[in-house]
Design a protein around this nucleic acid. Structure first.
Lengths: 159, 159
DNA sequence: ATTGACGTTGACGCTAACGTCATTGCGAAA
DNA sequence: TTTCGCAATGACGTTAGCGTCAACGTCAAT
């Protein structure tokens, strides 16, 4: 089986996941301590499955949107117990809906912040165009920002 | 001047601001320590102006969108130096634009999270509607969530 | 004169989320 | 066989953002 080194049965060392997701072994072990990850072992060494990798993704996504590890663990547990009994599913459903409401609020907050920044920007642009148009950031610089961001989407996400 | 107890010359005690924004005196003093607020004094007592109040709003908004106090201070300082010299304005403009890019990324992250939650929800709804449709959250309950949220918009914002 | 509500300044405490050693083990390469 | 490199555990350190307490001042109402 030479071509089957990838695909679902694949496993990962702690270092590999860390490189891929730009985090540290210490962090992964910490998440494990807190019950967010439970990789298999061979001997003492941790062996991460594809599922573990997916969980790690969820963890990091959760962090980016401002969730605490404890909250993320809760969510992961709800996902885990998915297809448990009906009562648990109902509980999970309610929790998820609550989360959605909270997130939508967060999104509005961010939209609001963006708008404020935009108006601040146009004021500054206005001021500058009158006093020192030469200092106005060029279109090139703007492109640089956008490019950096788009590139970022193809790397393992930085912080 | 009986009707002029409100309006721009108005000042606030620490307690008043805390009640209005649901935070604690300790927090305000902490922000002051960190250089985010600089209320006037009469004697030892802090006296907050309308401007100070506005700054506090910005601080709390900043926190809600996930900024650290240090970052918020930076932004406040940029706002302060607004209309300083042209070079500073140009610097501020660049910084603001960077922030906007970061926030837009954050917004995407949140949208993504919301979508994931939504699909999880519909899966659960599907499961429940097949096994135990009686456990499906009623339309009433959903309304409760929405109502709570809308009400929240008219109070001083909770966390 | 005292009580109570509000204010002040330290100073220490606490939680979250790791960073940073120090020490040990293990298997492969030189 | 020693030396690397990676992995593991355990313990202590660190930063942010306040909470909590103690000790004190002040003014108004009782």
């Amino acid at each position: 089986m030479p071509t089957e080194l990838r695909r679902p049965e694949r496993t990962f060392t702690i270092r590999q996941l860390c490189l891929e997701f730009k985090c540290t072994p210490r962090a992964l072990r910490f998440y494990e301590d807190k019950g967010l990850l439970k990789p298999a072992r061979q001997g003492l060494n941790r062996v991460y499955s594809y599922k573990d990798r997916a969980r790690l993704q969820l963890i990091l996504n959760g962090k980016r949107v401002g969730l605490a590890l404890a909250e993320i663990r809760e969510i992961l547990e709800l996902y885990d117990k998915g297809d448990g009994n009906a009562a648990q599913n109902a509980r999970a459903l309610r929790k998820f809906r609550e989360r959605i409401v909270v997130f939508e609020q967060k999104r509005e907050d961010i939209d609001h912040a963006i708008e404020e920044l935009r108006t601040a920007c146009s004021r500054l642009e206005d001021l500058l165009s009158r006093s020192r148009p030469d200092l106005l950031p060029s279109a090139e610089e703007y492109d640089k920002l956008v490019r950096a961001r788009v590139d970022g989407l193809h790397e393992a996400r930085p912080h």
